Amino acid sequence: MVSLPTHSNGIDVSLEELLIYRGPAARNNPFKGLPRTSHRAGQNLSRIKGRGMEFDEVRRYQSGDDVRTIDWRVTARTGHAHTKLFREERERPVLLFVDLGNRLHCGSALLLQSVQACHLAAMLGWQSINAGERLGGIICREGGHREHKPRARRQGIAPLLDSLVELHRAEQQSEPQYLDTGLNRLRRLAHPGSVVLVISDGLGFNDHHLDILAEMARHSEIRLFQITDPLSKRLAQLNADAVLPVWYQGKLTTLNHTGRQQWLQQLEQEQQHFVQGSRQRGLARSQVDAAIPLTEQLETLWHPIR
């Protein structure tokens, strides 16, 4: 029998259970072991997209310099070819986008999907600051958003963990457009060269949401972590007379057997749309099962699903 993670009851989220992931994050860290791109950026997931540099100074052109960096204004003014010099970016922020929407407050096995989303956010947060990265992000759900600008060390992780606990405990409200608000805030927060880690079940994402992520992927590293549940994947069965409370058609409701089948059909359609949409846009996607402790999924956490 699978045991609950330490300090977790599978339904609520506490700061104590999120602090536990500091240990596993130190032992298993995908941010480490890769080349550094600058003195302070830490070890990144992959090479920086875009220029990844900032202007430093202008000097006389030398043989071998890239002609694309010639400063034509200085060249025209002095009569001698000059080239621009750039230095590497000092920092590369890691941004978490955590979707704690009402529909994730459901689970047929070990944890609610929303609880697993918080656990994953804590793990990725600890991993990033342990590697010397700056950490920030957006945590959102109906009726509430928390924005954290990237900061180093404890100033980056502490407020983010507090917001996870706070928003997970918040009263359920109706706000169909909360993902629009959250992703627009994320787009403004993500500067070129950022690492953006999206945690969600993905089932509330429409084409517009995926287009926003695809646009950001032109200048940032994007990874989708999809939280799944055995029932929504039809890997678990309930008795015909069993009832299941779920967030369905904009409200919390208890479904009988017929209603549950309709709900599952809708989930399958949304799942297919998210998978195909992310694949068409070249967005890397991993899956995290809410029925398995996160510490038992570390080996496959970063494996992309095709």
Rank of each mutant, 00 (worst) to 15 (best):
S3N: 15
T6R: 13
S8P: 02
S8N: 09
V13L: 06
E17P: 04
L19H: 09
I20Y: 09
I20G: 09
R22K: 14
R22W: 08
R22Y: 10
P24Y: 05
A25T: 08
P30D: 01
R36G: 06
S38C: 02
H39D: 10
R40D: 11
A41I: 02
G42E: 04
G42I: 07
N44I: 00
S46D: 04
I48G: 09
K49Y: 06
E54L: 06
Q62Y: 11
Q62R: 14
G64S: 01
G64T: 06
T69W: 05
I70T: 11
W72A: 07
V74I: 12
A76V: 15
G79Q: 01
T83N: 10
R87Q: 10
R92M: 13
P93K: 08
V94C: 08
V98Q: 00
G101M: 06
N102P: 00
L104A: 13
H105K: 07
L111C: 05
S114F: 04
A122Q: 06
L124W: 06
W126Y: 10
L135A: 11
I138E: 03
I139P: 06
E142T: 02
G143A: 14
H145A: 03
E147W: 07
R153C: 05
Q155G: 12
I157P: 01
A158I: 11
P159Q: 05
L161Q: 05
H168C: 07
L179D: 00
L183N: 03
L183T: 00
N184H: 14
R185K: 15
L189S: 09
L189K: 13
A190M: 11
P192T: 12
S194K: 04
F205D: 04
N206V: 05
H208R: 11
L210I: 07
E215C: 12
E215A: 08
M216A: 13
R218W: 08
D229W: 03
D229K: 07
S232I: 02
K233G: 03
Q237V: 13
Q237M: 04
N239V: 00
A240T: 06
A240H: 15
A242S: 14
V243F: 10
Q249K: 14
L255D: 05
N256A: 02
H257Q: 15
Q261Y: 06
W263A: 09
Q265H: 08
Q265S: 14
E270R: 11
V275M: 01
S278N: 00
Q280I: 13
L283K: 02
R285I: 07
S286G: 12
A290R: 11
A291H: 14
E296M: 10
E296P: 02
T300D: 08
L301G: 10
W302P: 06
W302L: 15
I305H: 11
